[in-house]
C-alpha cells in the first residue's frame, strides 16, 4: 500500500493558492456575452399564436398511441407518428411543486415563486410552470400533489406569443 504521496508539489501549490488569494493585486474587468434573436419557432408557431391572439392553450396528441404532449410536439417519440393539435380546458393538477426563495439574476426581486410540474386535463406529460398566489398562500401545503390549478393569461396587450404569456393560479 502506498500511503504517502510521493511528491510535495500538491502542498506547495495549496500554500501558494491560499497566499495568492489573500493578495489584492490582481485584475478583473467588466464583460458580457449578448446575442439578439428573432427566433423562429417553426411547427410550434400555432401554440404561441393561439396564446397571443386567442388566449387558448393547445397540446398535441399522438394519432397512434394517443399520448398527450404538453408542451406540444409534432412527433410522438415512441411511435414516430405525427401528433395532432388539441385544445385544452386550461385546467390541470400539480404533480410536484416547490416554493422557491431564490432566483436567477433576472428573478431575484420576484421571489418567492412557486414552481410545479402541472399535468393538464387530457394530457399525459406535465409542464413545469409557475403558480401565482396571494402573498399568504405561498406555502408548501398549497403545492400538494393533486392540487387543482387553472391557467390565467396576461392582458392581450402584454402578450408576446411566449411561454411567459400565461401562468397558473389555484383553482379553489
Amino acid at each position: 500500500m502506498n500511503n504517502v504521496p510521493k511528491k510535495d508539489f500538491k502542498e506547495k501549490l495549496l500554500a501558494q493558492i491560499d497566499q495568492l488569494n489573500k493578495d489584492p493585486n490582481f485584475h478583473e474587468y467588466y464583460d458580457e456575452m449578448i446575442i439578439h434573436y428573432k427566433y423562429s419557432v417553426g411547427e410550434l408557431s400555432k401554440f404561441f399564436v393561439e396564446i397571443r391572439d386567442n388566449a387558448k392553450l393547445f397540446g398535441t396528441k399522438c394519432t397512434k398511441c394517443g399520448f398527450g404532449y404538453f408542451p406540444p410536439r409534432l412527433y410522438c417519440n415512441k411511435c414516430y407518428t405525427k401528433c395532432e393539435w388539441t385544445e385544452l380546458s386550461g385546467k390541470g393538477e400539480i404533480i410536484a411543486g416547490t416554493i422557491a426563495h431564490f432566483g436567477v439574476s433576472a428573478f431575484t426581486d420576484k421571489v418567492p415563486i412557486s414552481i410545479a410540474f402541472i399535468k393538464m386535463d387530457g394530457m399525459d406529460m406535465a409542464i413545469r410552470h409557475t403558480i401565482v398566489m396571494d402573498e399568504a398562500d405561498y406555502k408548501i401545503e398549497n403545492m400538494k400533489k393533486g392540487t387543482r390549478v387553472k391557467v390565467q393569461f396576461k392582458p392581450k396587450e402584454k402578450r408576446e406569443g411566449k411561454i411567459t404569456d400565461f401562468y397558473f393560479v389555484l383553482d379553489k
Binding site: 411543486g97 422557491a100 436567477v104 414552481i115 409542464i127
Partner: peptide, 24 residues
C-alpha cells in the same frame, strides 16, 4: 429555452421536485 428557461428556474428548484414527489 422554449418552455422552461424563461420562467426563471434554477438547479435547486429543478432537483427539489423529484424529492417533493418522493416525499408525497
Amino acid at each position: 429555452c422554449e418552455f422552461v428557461r424563461p420562467l426563471g428556474s434554477f438547479p435547486a428548484a429543478s432537483y427539489v421536485l423529484p424529492v417533493r414527489a418522493h416525499i408525497e
